[in-house]
Structures are given as C-alpha cells and as structure tokens.
Amino acid sequence: MELRIFTEPQQGASYDDLLAVARTAEAAGYGAFFRSDHYLKMGDVDGLPGPTDAWITLAGLARDTERIRLGTLMTAATFRHPGPLAISVAQVDQMSGGRVEFGLGAGWYEEEHTAYGLPFPPTGERFERYAEQLEVVTGLWNTPPGETYSFEGKHYRLTDSPALPKPAHRIPVLIGGLGPRRTPALAARHADEFNLPFADAETAAQQFARVEAACEAIGRDPGEITRSVALVVAIGRDDAEVARRAAAIGREVDELKRNGLAGTPAEVVDRLGQWRERTAVTRVYLQVLDLADLDHVEFVAAEVAPQLRS
C-alpha cells in the first residue's frame, strides 16, 4: 500500500509552507504530494495568508522538488476553461520532468465561486461541463503531434487546435466521488485512478463495485484503475501525542478513529489492513492539516509506511 501526502492550503498556508511539506515528504519517501484546489477557507479558521492557486503552486514545486509526484484532489472544472487548463497542466508536467497527475472534479463549493465571481451552474450543468472537460483535456493531450483536435460539445467548442504543448509523459487522470451512475461511467472511460475522500469502508466498497461494473459494461479491465482513498491523519508515538495532534486540527481522537486514521502506528496499520481487505485499495492519501508539524510527516513515513510494504 502506497502512502501519499494530501494538503488543504485554503485553510491557511503560503507557498513556502507547502514547499516545506513537499520537500519533507520527498525526503521521507512518500509516493506523491497532492493539494486541494480551492479558493476559500472552510470552517472556523482565518485562512491566512489567503488562497493559493493549485497549478501555480504545482509549477513552483515542479522546479523546487526533484522526485516526488505532484497532483490535485481535485481541480474544479468550474474554475478553468479546458483548453487553457490542458496547456497549464502539460506545462507543469514538462517543468517537473513528467511527475504530474491530474485530478478533475465537477466543483461543489458554491461559496468560493460567489466570493471570486465564478459562475456556479446547477448540478446537472456542472456535471455536463465536467464530462466535456475530461473529453477535451485528454483529447488535446492524446492528439498525435502534427495533427489537430476539434470538439463540438454543448458547452465547449474547439476547432483545429494544434493540441500543444504535449505533456512530458502520459498524465494519469484521477476521478472520484459518490455519484451512483454518471461518476462510475466517467471513471470507466477516463480514469487511471478512482479516489474516494473521507468515506467509510462500506461506502467505498460499494462505489468501487459500481466503477468495476461500469468498466465491465464497456469492456474495460477494472484492474487498470487504481483504487485510492483520502483520510485525515493524527498519528503519534503514544496516546498523548495522538491527542495533541487531533486537538491541533480541532478534532476528537475517537471521532478520527472512526472516520480517519488516528492512533499509534500499530493501530493505524491494523486499520489500513482492514481497509485493504474490505476495499482492495492500494493507495492512501493522508490528509495533513497541521502543515507546521513536519515531524508528523516524517514519523508516519518511518513508523507506518515500512509495515505496509512488508
């Protein structure tokens, strides 16, 4: 089971804060550093110094790190036009030497759209736009060099695009969410990885089964799609350290043990084993909310990750 670091910088983080976590994660041997794509804080925090743009951040990290993979959970389709988005992500991939992974979602947080003047269509239209964006972005990347790409959709139209620049490698596409019909169908068509954030194992197992069925319906091998989850973490050497880390992010230990990953390394390894047995996940995104606690990142890499590899 692979562990990755997942951050929520809209809650309050500068680029330098994110760089410190990314470099710590890289040195500790994590598989990837991911961040959310949000423009507004959530909950009772001040969010200072204010939001950072996901792809500008990843462009910086592409040059300021060397090996760790980089990506988003999830870029909102409501934030960007798919043509320029394909250009931005391909450029960041080139800047990183082929280390980018691309998570795309429909967008859901209405308040951030209102705060920054972004259109927030009804759910049905957002999903239509999301589906078209997946077609356009991957279509532009996959167009052979020297050929052009055109697309005629309900919301987006591209004519004779040169489909440049090309990414440095084939960028993995991540899709996620709990929609029972359209989401699994889109995953079957486009996803290299299907991610479920903050769900319980039973719910996750049911959704993974829907994705598997959607793959089989179009003749795709479901084993081609990596299964992953995102879970908030508070892991410590003893109960006191676990409690301190939970309190630092405004959570209760018992609640985190039910809904996330909390406890000593032995407790967390056991819980991840239960996840693997129930859902067949092979990748876990550890949501690290206290970005100043770099010891937390290093401790999990040293005490939890080796037990998952053995």
Rank of each mutant, 00 (worst) to 15 (best):
D254P: 02
R210V: 03
R278M: 09
Y116P: 09
A248C: 12
D16I: 12
A213V: 06
A22D: 04
S228R: 01
I218V: 08
Q207Y: 11
T282H: 01
L73G: 08
V300G: 03
T279W: 15
W55H: 11
F120K: 15
N142T: 12
A266R: 13
E125A: 08
A280Y: 13
G31T: 13
A32G: 02
P180I: 09
G250K: 10
E224L: 10
Q91M: 08
A280S: 14
V288P: 04
G50Y: 10
F6H: 15
C215F: 06
H190Q: 00
E66M: 07
G273M: 00
L40H: 14
A302M: 07
D17P: 01
D238Y: 12
R271Q: 13
F127N: 13
V242L: 04
Q274M: 05
Y39I: 12
F299L: 02
A76W: 12
A13E: 04
E241P: 05
G31H: 04
A201E: 01
D37K: 09
F120G: 09
S14D: 00
L3R: 01
A62Q: 09
P145S: 10
L308T: 08
G223N: 05
L61I: 01
L134H: 05
L261W: 03
A302Y: 01
G107V: 06
D192F: 15
I249A: 02
I249G: 03
E241K: 10
Y39V: 07
G223D: 02
A204W: 02
E277R: 15
L231Y: 04
F194A: 07
P162M: 03
E303G: 03
A214M: 05
M95E: 05
F198M: 07
D192R: 10
G83N: 10
A25Y: 11
R35H: 12
Q94Y: 12
G97F: 14
G236A: 06
T78M: 09
E212L: 01
V232S: 12
V89R: 01
V253N: 03
D44C: 09
V92A: 14
A234Q: 05
A280M: 07
A28W: 03
L3T: 09
E132L: 04
I225T: 07
V137G: 08
E125I: 14
T264W: 10
D293K: 14
G97I: 08
A168R: 15
D270Y: 10
T57A: 11
M42V: 15
E112S: 08
G263H: 04
P167Q: 00
T264A: 00
S161R: 14
G236Q: 02
L286M: 14
W275S: 06
A246L: 11
R220E: 00
E255D: 06
P122Y: 15
G223W: 00
A187W: 13
G83E: 08
E101A: 11
R23T: 09
A191L: 07
E101W: 14
T138A: 02
F34L: 08
Q207W: 10
V269F: 06
R220I: 09
D53R: 03
S36Q: 08
A201F: 05
P84T: 06
A54S: 14
D221N: 13
Q133L: 08
G219M: 05
A205I: 01
K257I: 06
A246V: 13
G12F: 04
S14N: 03
L272Q: 03
A185F: 07
E298F: 00
